[in-house]
Design a protein around this nucleic acid. Structure first.
Lengths: 235, 235
DNA sequence: AATTAGTTAAATGTCGACAATTATGGCACT
DNA sequence: AGTGCCATAATTGTCGACATTTAACTAATT
């Protein structure tokens, strides 16, 4: 059972109001590319589609804007953010800084129980990975789970809000729309393992450094892919 | 002339709609403590006070929520965030991570013109500080200006949005309501100077380290003050 | 007297309509 | 034919009213 479901809900609170449910629906649609990146969002159209009033839709759009999934201009309207390489790399820079710090804080603030739980999760993932071997889908989920646990472990509400409430939706959007099933599965696994060890040793400085390298490695991997692609196009 | 005025406007776009203006007004009221931290926000009351409809007010509240200045619960209402020591320290942790990274990026991405402009600003502040000497008000503005310039210099839209659009309102709120006129004026000045030098040398690694120490020093200064206060209360 | 159930009042969520602004299309003009 | 201007249409911003949920208050029971 994966814990990433909770990522869909920034407030960590069940969707009770209709605006919440519509927000969830549109969120998924955007993340999965059913509503194209960079496309304009028509309020009357979406309102009719979801059979709700424009007021309620605007409420949902406001929450999407908080996740940086859409951008609004006064008297002009909303657009879905577009997936550019530059945008993706920018996010990785922010993640390196924030998750690195979250990891440092986690080494200080996580309880022994939390750490034990995280270690158990890694073991479970290791087994499922051994079974699937090379299939990266579960690895991806496992990756999100791991990062999610570390972030929560920081016990810093600001870090949690920014990373889980805002950035991770964007990260998922990019992953899905760029078809990024990382070939770093086994390597990433070792890195996760080292990070947990550092947290277990309460070595915040090392934990931060390892997490930053872990994320920087992903970023460089993307940059490499991009370079290959552009080289492919040139010939 | 200070540049921090632009911080009041997260979108870096003039307030054209009435919801924008009301947002600005309430923002100032909250930051300056005219609307008490932790207090409940009544939609009908504020709507009547600003002579607008509830819809427009809710639009403004949504933007305040994006700045993390108010928190909303479904079917319950909005509250102004409360100023706790823990909250302030959490923000400094995030700032250390993000502004450190912004500084690293700035060392790589700032143009020579931008760097020259920033150096000129520091010189100007140095003179005004020599005149006022010890008066910390202008120093505070100078401090915000400096950090603002570095953040913009990162040329990373995600960093800029999070730091200038969200966190800085909270930082100002805490500064004003806790009456934090730092006694680190001259020291902070030297640190700013070193950071600019590192950026000028295009030494991203050093620039990040210096910025992180600079912010960490502020945080420790606060922690010290808190410790003194609690000791004062005990006897 | 304290607690719980029921009722009333107030606040939030949702709706449809109007006003203001922007985008679109056609027309005249160079 | 291309460019600039004007009128129309569509979209967004704002408003007031209704529906629904939560909070407060009263009253009855243990």
């Amino acid at each position: 059972m994966s814990t990433i479901m909770a990522l869909d809900n920034p407030t960590l609170q069940k969707a009770v109001t209709t605006a919440d449910k519509v927000f969830d629906s549109i969120l998924h649609a955007i993340v999965e590319g059913k509503i194209a990146a960079g496309s304009k969002v028509s309020e009357p159209e979406l309102a009719k589609q979801y059979e709700i009033s424009r007021s309620t839709l605007r409420e949902a759009l406001n929450r999407l804007e908080k996740c940086h999934l859409i951008e609004r201009k006064a008297n002009v309207g909303s657009r879905v953010v577009d997936c550019t390489i530059e945008g993706l790399l920018e996010i990785y820079v922010v993640r390196e800084a924030l998750e690195g710090m979250a990891c440092r804080q986690a080494a200080t603030n996580m309880s022994d129980d939390e750490i034990a739980e995280m270690q158990a999760m890694l073991t479970a993932h290791s087994k499922s990975q051994a079974l699937k071997d090379g299939v990266s889908y579960y690895q991806e989920e496992g990756d999100l789970d791991f990062h999610y646990k570390v972030i929560l472990g920081s016990h810093n509400q600001q870090l949690i809000n920014i990373l889980c409430g805002q950035l991770y939706h964007l990260v998922r959007m990019y992953r899905i729309q760029f078809g990024m099933h990382s070939p770093r599965a086994t390597k990433a696994f070792q890195e996760h393992s080292s990070i947990i060890q550092a947290i277990c040793d309460r070595d915040g400085e090392l934990a931060e450094m390892l997490m930053r390298r872990h994320i920087a490695a992903s970023r460089k991997n993307i940059e490499k892919k991009i370079a290959e692609n552009s080289k492919l196009k040139q010939k």
